Deep mutational scan, measured.
Amino acid sequence: DELVREILGRCTCPDQFPMIKVSEGKYRVGDSSLLIFVRVLRSHVMVRVGGGWDTLEHYLDKHDPCRC
C-alpha cells in the first residue's frame, strides 16, 4: 500500500490517475472497472500484465493519460 501510494504521489498532475484498493493485491484503475493485480518483488511494485509482470511505473507510463 505504501509503495503504491508513493509511486502515485510522484504525479504532479492536477487530476491524478485514480487507483483504488479493492482487496489485498487488487486495485481498480482509472475510471473503468478494470482490476489489476499488484505485488511487491524485491522492493519493486509489480503489476500483472497479460501472462507476465511489469513494474507499476512502466504500467502508469502506458496507461495514465497524463504520462502518455
Results as ranks from 00 to 15, higher is better:
15 D>I: 13
2 E>L: 13
58 H>C: 08
59 Y>G: 01
24 E>F: 00
45 V>M: 06
12 T>A: 06
49 V>C: 12
15 D>C: 10
56 L>R: 01
33 S>L: 10
18 P>M: 06
36 I>W: 04
39 R>S: 10
61 D>M: 11
60 L>C: 01
32 S>G: 11
8 L>W: 01
61 D>K: 09
59 Y>M: 03
10 R>N: 09
2 E>D: 15
31 D>A: 12
68 C>I: 12
48 R>N: 14
17 F>D: 00
10 R>F: 06
32 S>H: 10
30 G>Y: 03
44 H>Y: 06
42 R>L: 05
5 R>T: 12
64 D>W: 02
15 D>T: 15
5 R>A: 14
27 Y>G: 01
3 L>C: 11
51 G>F: 09
6 E>T: 11
49 V>T: 15
31 D>R: 11
6 E>G: 07
55 T>N: 10
9 G>W: 04
27 Y>M: 05
45 V>G: 04
58 H>W: 03
23 S>Q: 11
47 V>S: 00
37 F>T: 15
21 K>Q: 09
46 M>K: 05
66 C>G: 02
65 P>H: 05
15 D>E: 14
20 I>E: 12
4 V>P: 03
61 D>L: 12
30 G>I: 02
61 D>F: 09
57 E>F: 00
5 R>D: 10
8 L>R: 03
61 D>V: 09
44 H>A: 13
3 L>H: 08
25 G>V: 00
64 D>R: 04
46 M>Y: 14
63 H>M: 10
66 C>V: 00
4 V>W: 03
42 R>D: 15
4 V>Q: 00
4 V>M: 08
33 S>V: 04
3 L>M: 12
57 E>R: 01
18 P>A: 07
59 Y>A: 01
25 G>P: 02
27 Y>W: 14
14 P>G: 06
34 L>Y: 12
66 C>H: 02
47 V>L: 05
5 R>H: 10
30 G>P: 06
46 M>V: 08
30 G>F: 01
66 C>Y: 05
29 V>C: 09
55 T>G: 02
51 G>R: 10
12 T>C: 09
37 F>V: 14
40 V>Y: 09
13 C>F: 01
58 H>Y: 04
22 V>P: 00
13 C>Y: 03
11 C>Y: 01
41 L>I: 15
42 R>G: 15
10 R>K: 11
1 D>V: 04
60 L>I: 05
11 C>L: 01
35 L>D: 13
6 E>N: 06
13 C>L: 03
35 L>V: 12
49 V>G: 09
12 T>Q: 10
15 D>V: 14
28 R>S: 08
16 Q>W: 08
46 M>Q: 11
9 G>N: 11
42 R>H: 14
6 E>C: 04
37 F>N: 15
24 E>V: 06
26 K>M: 09
46 M>S: 04
41 L>H: 15
56 L>T: 04
21 K>T: 03
9 G>H: 09
68 C>H: 14
68 C>F: 13
15 D>K: 13
48 R>W: 07
64 D>P: 02
51 G>D: 15
30 G>H: 04
34 L>D: 15
61 D>H: 09
32 S>Y: 06
42 R>M: 11
2 E>G: 08
56 L>G: 05
31 D>N: 14
33 S>N: 14
46 M>A: 05
13 C>M: 03
41 L>A: 10
38 V>G: 05
55 T>Q: 06
22 V>C: 07
19 M>N: 03
25 G>A: 06
37 F>Q: 15
19 M>V: 08
64 D>A: 00
67 R>W: 00
27 Y>S: 02
29 V>M: 10
62 K>Q: 15
52 G>D: 13
23 S>A: 12
50 G>W: 02
47 V>M: 05
6 E>Q: 11
57 E>T: 07
42 R>E: 11
15 D>Y: 10
19 M>Y: 07
58 H>G: 13
67 R>E: 02
7 I>E: 11
52 G>V: 14
62 K>E: 14
39 R>A: 11
41 L>D: 13
17 F>S: 01
26 K>V: 15
48 R>A: 06
20 I>Y: 14
22 V>S: 02
59 Y>F: 15
42 R>T: 08
47 V>H: 03
63 H>E: 11
13 C>T: 02
14 P>E: 12
29 V>S: 07
67 R>A: 03
20 I>M: 12
62 K>Y: 09
9 G>Q: 14
38 V>I: 08
63 H>Q: 05
44 H>S: 14
29 V>P: 00
38 V>L: 08
57 E>M: 01
7 I>T: 07
48 R>F: 07
19 M>S: 01
68 C>E: 12
16 Q>M: 08
34 L>G: 15
3 L>T: 06
52 G>R: 13
15 D>H: 13
42 R>V: 04
2 E>N: 14
3 L>F: 09
61 D>A: 11
55 T>S: 13
63 H>A: 06
43 S>N: 15
30 G>N: 06
25 G>K: 03
6 E>Y: 04
27 Y>H: 08
14 P>N: 07
25 G>S: 10
38 V>N: 03
35 L>I: 14
13 C>E: 03
16 Q>V: 09
6 E>H: 06
30 G>S: 06
19 M>K: 06
3 L>G: 04
21 K>P: 04
41 L>K: 10
44 H>P: 03
64 D>C: 08
44 H>M: 15
16 Q>Y: 02
57 E>W: 04
62 K>G: 08
14 P>F: 06
11 C>F: 02
8 L>E: 03
28 R>P: 00
67 R>S: 03
47 V>T: 03
43 S>G: 15
51 G>N: 13
51 G>T: 13
57 E>C: 00
28 R>W: 07
65 P>A: 05
43 S>T: 13
